[in-house]
Design a binder for these strands. Sequence first.
RNA 1: UGGCCCUUGGUGUAACGGUAGCACGAUUGACUCUGGAUCAAUUAGUCUAGGUUCAAAUCCUAGAGGGCCAGCCA
Length: 563
Amino acid sequence: MSSGEAVRTDFIRDIIDEHNRTGRFGGRVHTRFPPEPNGYLHIGHAKSICLNFGIAQQYGGQCNLRFDDTNPTKEDVEYVDSIMEDVRWLGFQWDGLYYASDYFEQLYQWAVQLIKAGLAYVCDQTPEEVRRSRGTLTAPGQESPYRNRTVAENLDLFERMRAGEFADGSRTLRARIDMGASNLNLRDPVLYRILKAEHHRTGNKWCIYPMYDYAHGQSDSLERITHSICTLEFENHRPLYDWFIEALGIYAPQQIEFARLNLTYTVMSKRRLLSLVQEGHVSGWDDPRMPTIAGLRRRGYTPEGLRQFCAVIGVTKFNSLTEVELLEHCLRDDLNKRSPRVMAVLNPLRVVITNYPEGQVEQLEFINNPEDPSAGSRQVPFSRVLYIEQDDFREQAPKKFFRLTPGGEVRLRWAYYLKCNEVVKDEAGNIVELRCTYDPASRGGWTPDGRKVKATIHWVSAEHAVAAEVRLYDRLFTKEDMNDLAEGEDWRTHLNPRSLTVTRAYVEPSLAEATPGGVPFQFERQGYFQLDPKDSRPGQPVFNRTVTLKDSWAKIEKKEQGD
RNA sequence: UGGCCCUUGGUGUAACGGUAGCACGAUUGACUCUGGAUCAAUUAGUCUAGGUUCAAAUCCUAGAGGGCCAGCCA
């Protein structure tokens, strides 16, 4: 972690400090990040990753990466690979790499131990019967008629479950706890179910698979995890987590729960993200509009920016909704320092400088990054025909608009003063060209008479420009809180139809040599852009807009129109 | 309806019985060859009601509001 990222304290670190004071774990700190490989990681996982790996770093401890792969019907190696890539890209390296499936045999032996202790039994109830006998939030459940089978019978049945003698769903192994418990997780939870499915790592070795509750705590225990940090929805599971550890008489980690990240204008549930991909609302898990790590990476987000964001949002038990503006702030803050400034005209308007000699080309010096003098400068060609941004010219200038207007003068960035003399239109009345004059004495952007212009606009030389595709992204959804939907309302109805805009842009010649994965660029006055790693081709660059620059003109214009 | 958890400006958080602070956002101004960046200022808060205490955002009780739980998902 770089030095700029402050280590904050939070209630979890407070608990760890307390444990260190009392010596509960002998001063040891060992966390783990335990994703299920059933989807791509998203920015909510980044919060968890930064928390778990960050704590390990801060306390001189360790952090494991463990795949919680106990449900073969939903998991896949594609996800395993993407998860490892994402964790590394975020800047973390795990100490131990494990899979819950590594522990299947041990978990089985522990189940036998529970059966022998009279704490688990094989149940023949159908899923429907189990549901009916579980009771409700207010009423206790009824005990299963199979609850009092003998140890010998349970042992025999459980062994035959493993041997594949029974059909999927026909039997389960259940813990013998309390059907009247107010915490429903304690009403004889299922430990093992029969699932004749091929597992991405163990193949067909097993046809019974442990449930999350039965596998997770014991996996933590085996890895000598000290602090098992998870999200709030597992709070009700902690008594069960502790029950297994206690019943088995094994090493006891401490589970601690925190609130997951929610962001405005996006969805974070794996189910919804999967739907977006499968239903084609986005191009894939790494679509730059997705809140996935892969999507954010492709869009141009940096690990530093993401880590800073995770540091700034903090960790609490309060179910919050973080404004996406905070994320964007963290990104701009990082990008601003490191991005070379370049010229790109997104919506080109042709400008002919009538008093500039035909065929003449000048090389003008551009500062690469005013924030970073060591970034140096470069040469950019200037000639008689340029492209400027359509938005930078208004035939009828609104109030407070001080870019180019008929008869008005602006500065071309690092070049000359430019005055508009004539507007050329097509039959339909569209502006197709501006005929302008420049002031030869203003070379470099200053005039000897010291007269001022109110605006500086960007441009590219038409003859030298490189055509590029530029993809502009907006929020994926138009609704701020996607967890706050009306009864029966389909979340898809809030998809933003304008979340992607593609433009045919002209960029300065130096960008022809840009390579994917290289430095991010700031297109002056527009935003930060990164080459698309999938669709960009040499000579045919495709740029993704990572985030816009703050645009105070847009704000003024909106306000003026509102008045 | 039962259990568990949560509640500090618009948003995210800090304050560990003793001055309610920071960041984002918003607004205003300064500066500027990016209407960018930077800098400065302003804005705005302890869910309610009781109680304990010299003193409560903090402890207690009740209420209100929110979250999670009735998968052989995690």
